[in-house]
Write a protein that binds this DNA or RNA. Structure first.
Lengths: 187, 187, 187, 187
DNA sequence: AATGAATGAGGCTTCATTCAT
DNA sequence: GATGAATGAAGCCTCATTCAT
C-alpha cells in the first residue's frame, strides 16, 4: 500500500507543478488538481494538509537546493573561471533540471510564503553587483537594483521558453554578455 | 449641487489606484476599496457601475494619453535628437505625471481589458529593435524580446520608485545608456 | 406650492401606471419611476410611503369602482336587456376608461395585496355561471371555472390590445357570443 | 457509489419543480430551494451548475417530449379520427404524466430559454385555427388569437387541477367540445 | 420640499476545507 | 485509504428604503 500511496503523492506533485506553472498558486483550484490526478478532492487532503502544503511539496526541496547553490555561488566563486562563465553554469544547471519549479517559485507564488522570494534574490544580486562596481558614478542604487532585476527576469523568461541544452546555453550566454557589456557602462 | 460628491468619487479612485497598484485588479476586492474609503460596498455602486468601471476610472484617460504619445514616438522621432534622448523624454513625461497608473495598466490589469497591454508594448518594442539590429548574429528572437522586456520593466521599476524630476532623468538616462551599450554587443 | 405638489403626485402615478403596465409590480424599480418622472428617488418617498403605496395610488380607486360595478352587475342586471349585452356594456366601460389599470390589477399585481384579485373575480364569475346553468350534466365544477377564467382572460387580452371604441365593441361582442354559444354546449 | 446522491438530486428537482410551479423561475431563490431540500445553498451547486441548470433539469426532457408530440400532432393527424379526439388524446398524455412541468414551461419560465414558449405554441395554434376557419367574418385576428390562448390556458388550468385519468378525459372533452361549438359561431 | 448620499438585506456563485461513511 | 457529500466564508452586484442637509 505504501507504493500506491507514494505513486499518488507524486502524481499530485506532478499535476500541481504543471498547474501552478500554468496558472499560478492563486488561480489553481484544488478541484482542478484532483480532477487531473483522477482522485477526489477530499483525498487530496489525506496527502497534503492544504493547498499551500501541495505548493511546498512541489517547491520546498528545490528551494533548499536553489538557495544553497546560490549562496555557494556568492561566497566563493572559483577564481579560475570568470564570473560570467560561473553564472552561466549555475543557471543552466538549475533550469535544465528544474525549469518549472524555478518559474513557479519566482513568478507564480503569490499567496504563499515564497511570495517575496524573487525580490530577495534580486536584492542579493543587486548588493553583490554593487560590491563589484566602484559605483561612485552611480547616483542611485536603484539603477543597479533594476539591472539585477532585469537580469534575473531575463533568466526567468528564458526558463519559461526552455527548449534544450544547446538553446539554453546560447541564450544565457547572450544574456550574460549583454549585461556584462551594459555594466561596463556603469563603471 | 453636483450629481455625485466629487470628493468621494475621487477618493474612491485614489484608494482604488493604491489598492490596484498593490494587489492588482483581481485581488482587490470591492470590500477593501469601500472599507478604506470609509463607505459601504453598495455605496460604491452609486459612483461606479462595477469594479471594472472603477478600474477604468483610474486608467482610461491615462491609456489614451500613453498610447497617443507612444505612437507619436514610433512614427516620427525627431531626427535632430538621438533616439535615446527621445525615449528618455517621452518616458519621463509619462512617469512624472502618472507613475502608478503606468504600473497598474501594464502590470496589474489581469481581468480587465488591459490584460494584454504590456505584452503588446513589449512586442512592438521588440520588433522595433529587430529592425535596428542586423541580427544575423542573434540565434533566437527570444533574446531580443527579453531585452525589450527588460528595458520596459526597468522603466516600470523606475516608475515604482519615482522621487523627483532630477532623480528620474538621471536614472532613465543610465538605464537607456546601459541598454544601448548592451545592444552594441548583439550587432 | 400645493399645485406643484399635486402635479408631481399625479405624474408619479402616471409614470408608475405605465411602468407597472409594462413590467409588473415586481419588475418595476423605484429608480425607474423616479427617473422617468424626473425627480430623485428619495423624493418619491415624500409622496408615497413605499413602492406598494404607489401601486395602490394607481389602483385603489379603480378597484373600488370596478368592484362596485361588478357587484351591481351580479345583483340586479336589467331584465330588459339580455345578459350578454349587459356584460358587454359593463366591460366596455371599464376598458375604455381604465384599460391599463384593469390590466395592472388583474395581471401585473404580483407582490401586492391584489395578487389574488383575478382569481377572486374568476371564482365569482364561475359561481354565477353555475347558477345560470342547470349543470347536472357537468361532472366537475372545474370546467365552469375554466370557462370563466377563459372568458375573463380573454377580456384582459382584449384590454391589452385596446385600440378604440369600435374595435373594442366588436371584439368583446365576438368573445361574448363565442362563450355564449360554447356554454350552450354545457346545458 | 453513484457520483452524486440520486436521492438528493431528485429531491432538488422535486422541490424546485414545486417552487417554480408556485413562484416561477425569477421569484424562486436558490435559498428557498436549498432550505426546503434541507441542504446549504452552496451544496446545491454540487448537483447543478446554477439556478438555470436546475430549471432545465426539471424541464428539458419534458420539452423534447412535448415538442415532438406537438409537431406530430400538427403534421399528420390521423384522418380516421376527428381533430377533437386527436387533440384530446395528445393533451391527456401530456398532462397525466407531467402536469406541473407543463405549467412551468409554459407559464413560469420568465428568465429562462423557455420564456417565449407559450407564446409560440399559442401563435401556432392560432395560425392553425385561422386556416380552419373561412374567417371573412372575423374582423380582427386578435379574437382568434384570444381563443387559441383561451383554449391553451384552459388546458393549463386543467393541468393544474389534474386528479385522475377519467376526470381528465371528461374535462378535456368538455373543454374541446365547448371551443368547437364556440368556433362554429365564428364561421 | 428636494435631493445627494448612504446602506442593509438579499441574490447568485466559487472555493478551500471538513465530515461521515 | 477513499470519497461522496456538505458547508461557511467570501466575492460581486441590485434594490427598496432612510438619512442629512
Amino acid at each position: 500500500m505504501q507504493i500506491l500511496k507514494d505513486e499518488i503523492r507524486n502524481k499530485i506533485l506532478d499535476v500541481a507543478e504543471n498547474l501552478f506553472y500554468q496558472n499560478g498558486f492563486r488561480d489553481t483550484t484544488t478541484r482542478s488538481i484532483a480532477n487531473e490526478v483522477g482522485i477526489s478532492v477530499s483525498n487530496l487532503y489525506l496527502y497534503y494538509e492544504n493547498k499551500e502544503a501541495i505548493f511546498y511539496g512541489v517547491t520546498d526541496r528545490f528551494y533548499e537546493y536553489f538557495v544553497s547553490g546560490f549562496e555557494a555561488f556568492l561566497d566563493h566563486h572559483d577564481k579560475n573561471i570568470t564570473m560570467d562563465v560561473c553564472i552561466s553554469h549555475y543557471i543552466r544547471k538549475i533550469i535544465s533540471t528544474d525549469q518549472k519549479k524555478f518559474v513557479i517559485i519566482t513568478d507564480k507564488s503569490q499567496g504563499t510564503k515564497y511570495e517575496g522570494f524573487k525580490q530577495q534574490i534580486i536584492s542579493i544580486l543587486s548588493n553583490h553587483m554593487k560590491t563589484q562596481l566602484n559605483n561612485n558614478l552611480v547616483q542611485d542604487e536603484l539603477v543597479i537594483y533594476i539591472l539585477a532585476k532585469n537580469f534575473f527576469e531575463g533568466i526567468i523568461e528564458i526558463a519559461k521558453n526552455y527548449k534544450n541544452e544547446h538553446w539554453l546555453e546560447s541564450n544565457i550566454n547572450t544574456l550574460v554578455k549583454y549585461h556584462m557589456k551594459g555594466m561596463g557602462e556603469l563603471m
